[in-house]
């Protein structure tokens, strides 16, 4: 069982190749708006170094945002081109859900991607990692009203080292092995042609119409 995971929806590029539940290639780097130069070469390296034929891949897990529109499109385009060419199952996963698999033993996992002006993307998962809040775009005030309604031990995992008062805070760490083991809790295979980013935000021009 060979599984390829990759994500470029935020400033981190992450490529991991798993074979029978073991990490056989792992790359992570901050590329400063240049994921395009590194993602395909990294995937290529993952297969070449391990002498694996591209046709022999069993599964692709790909990050679909929210995050950078262009960054997400880079991963999605590669995933859908690869998957549709060789009929490989592809499973999309939110960048927010990816963040919760390096923290354990909480009743709720709240993942946050910070944006400008105290706005943020947020999702919430329960102790079984089941999703209880869809990926949303909210402000700080709304965040605290949501947090107040959660009963139990809450972990906040975010893409910065920002602290949220009275809560256990963690900086995000992407753990593809755990993601792969838990992928079926909230996600399922999609037709690669229909794979697209989860932008959440509307386009300005459309909002103005």
């Amino acid at each position: 069982m060979i599984c390829l995971f990759f994500d470029t929806s935020l400033d981190l590029l992450k490529v991991t190749l798993l074979k029978d539940n073991e990490v056989i290639y792992d790359k992570q780097m901050i590329t400063k708006n240049d994921h395009s130069s590194y993602l395909v070469p990294s995937i290529n390296e993952a297969f070449k170094k391990n002498n694996i034929d591209f046709k022999n891949l069993d599964k692709i897990i790909v990050g679909i945002g929210p995050g950078s529109f262009t960054g997400t499109r880079i991963s999605i385009t590669i995933a859908k081109t690869y998957a549709s060419s060789f009929n490989i199952p592809v499973i999309p996963i939110s960048s927010l859900e990816q963040m919760i698999y390096s923290v354990y033993d909480y009743d709720y996992y709240v993942s946050i991607i910070e944006e400008k002006n105290d706005n943020m993307y947020i999702a919430i998962f329960d102790k079984d990692r089941k999703r209880v809040l869809d990926d949303s775009y909210i402000n700080m005030e709304k965040l605290y009203s949501i947090l107040n309604d959660l009963n139990g031990k809450v972990a906040i995992i975010s893409n910065s080292n920002k602290r949220y008062d009275n809560y256990d805070c963690f900086e995000k760490k992407i753990n593809p092995l755990e993601i792969s083991n838990n992928i079926n809790i909230n996600n399922h295979e999609v037709n690669p042609h229909l794979l697209k980013p989860n932008y959440i935000k509307k386009i300005e021009a459309e909002a103005k119409l």
Binding site: F54, I78, T81
Partner: peptide, 9 residues
């Protein structure tokens, strides 16, 4: 990205 992927695989 689509072209690079096809060239690679």
């Amino acid at each position: 990205e689509a072209a690079k992927t096809l060239a690679m695989i």
